[in-house]
Design a protein around this nucleic acid. Structure first.
Lengths: 147, 147
DNA sequence: ATGAAATTGAAAATCATTTTCATTATATAG
DNA sequence: CTATATAATGAAAATGATTTTCAATTTCAT
């Protein structure tokens, strides 16, 4: 296959190696699961899916790999009203998340970058804050879950 | 005093009573702390501050009171990259948060409501999602912490 | 192939939060 | 104002997610 997911898997593996991490079997499993998932996955979910492919996988290793992938910018931790344990593939470029509250499906959208800058600038001027980062996230129900 | 904070304390107490909750000493303590705080506070911080005023205060009661105040719409749980245990007073009206990453100070700003609606509408149309809720939050360093 | 170093998984520890439950405080009826 | 039903409390125990520890294993440069 030469899908987006397949490309992402290769990219993530290459990035791990470039960053000095060894390409181990458990790491490959975690990478393959998350690079292909369009749903938010918790560490436990990754562990359970992963064990079907690699029976000896440890939950601790899942936690450690998720942390590494997040630090390297490949994963995002997703915050939701119901909890903040989930991870999804970080998009390439400036995107925001749309999350289905039923099934955890995630879509990426490009916020209006211009107006976001305007808002940040205005808020910075009024508050005296130096604004560093912004979060914009939408929640809803995906097409499949509406049916 | 007849400050905003004093008004908020009275309002929150009244709301608790209206909603059928008893106005107990521990609840008053928690209300008074959070109605006056301009910083994000964790349950443990509320507990520690509260014990100075009411030595017998229990941490469990703090948790329960925070939950109640959140359910009644008076408190917001604040999500941050570093963690999601903090609470602040919910603003009256449609506002977003600006959070100082050094000290946890919070300011409220009104997002551009119009353009937010536009974004939600566009994203809904493109994705097939029914969009229910949005989060917009800015992070930075407040004036005091920059000095 | 070899060996140093990184990585692993199991078990134990930790930390925040929730549940349980006997005791206490509240507010309402009398 | 007192009695009383009930809500609320706090201590202890339980839970659940995450982190630490550590001996055994795997990886990869030599």
């Amino acid at each position: 296959m030469q899908t987006i997911e397949a490309q992402r898997i290769e990219l993530w593996k290459a990035r791990l190696e470039e960053s000095g991490y060894r390409l181990t079997a458990p790491r490959k499993v975690v990478v393959e699961i998350l690079a292909c998932s369009q749903h938010i996955l918790t560490p436990l979910q990754v562990y359970e899916i992963g064990r079907k492919r690699y029976a000896n996988l440890g939950l601790v290793t899942v936690y450690r790999t998720l942390e590494t992938l997040e630090q390297l910018g490949m994963l995002w931790r997703v915050h939701q009203p119901q909890g903040c344990q989930g991870f999804v593939a970080a998009p390439v470029g400036h995107f925001h998340l749309l999350v289905c509250q039923e099934c955890g499906r995630v879509e990426y959208f490009s916020g209006d970058y211009r107006s976001m800058e305007v808002i940040c600038g205005r808020v910075a001027a009024q508050s005296g804050f130096r604004v560093i980062e912004h979060w914009l996230q939408l929640f809803g129900v995906c097409a499949a879950c509406q049916a």
